[in-house]
Amino acid sequence: MSIIENHTTNGQPFCKDPKLTARGVGVFYGEKQAIFDVSLDIGANEVIALIGPSGCGKSTFLRCLNRMNDTIDICRVTGAIELDGEDIYDPKVDVVPLRARVGMVFQKPNPFPKSIYDNIAYGPRIHGLAQSRVELDEIVEKSLQRAGLWNEVKDRLHAPGTGLSGGQQQRLCIARTIAVDPEVILMDEPCSALDPIATAKIEELIDELRENYTIAIVTHSMQQAARVSQRTAYFHLGQLIEVNPTDQVFTTPEHALTEAYITGRFG
């Protein structure tokens, strides 16, 4: 398998009311190119799923959207990504407020070695979102409630976050992200380290969060993409092959590669 020459993305990569727009995005790790000319819109208050075989560049693309790739020395991004019409790779843009607007949840739950309370309060504290202790308490409680974790942890807010179960830890990380009140939440295979029950809870949560947030989720599981997303983008070897409404992708895919993937011929 090699990359397809002169490929243009099939389906509907663009939408009317885009929150994030990517145009001709390429990513290089040193000499090696990992993403080729990806153009994609992410609409406001939609959940878009990025799927594709391992190493197809879906996570790399996701990490471009809040410039998490900046932390890797040799990584270089070309093309344009705009958030509400502002170029996020403009040299004048500070990544700090950008990341406050575009939050991220990672593959493996990564609670800080602090208490549950401090985990949630970390973001609001550094960004100066709360004027008082009462306000901070309120943010913590609300975030935990929205993440569906409040009832499980309200009696042990000052216990270490690392003591929670895997699913709880991941919901803690989502709560931590919500606490900063972002506009977009990026989720990089948030359930891959979790058991089915915990996964179901997170999926439920994603569905609820859609009301307020724009969500891009990278997933390995086609069922999960089908369950939580409105649109699905299929990546293959660093190229964006097809973007369509989720129902359509899983019933009548346009591109042969997409069909091959969803019917399980490779993955």
Binding site: D94, V96, P97, A100, R101, I126, H127, G128, L129, V180, D181
Partner: peptide, 13 residues
């Protein structure tokens, strides 16, 4: 929130 974050930036930078 956005304004608050922007406001904190000077001190943080």
């Amino acid at each position: 929130t956005r304004e608050k974050v922007e406001k904190s930036m000077k001190r943080r930078r």
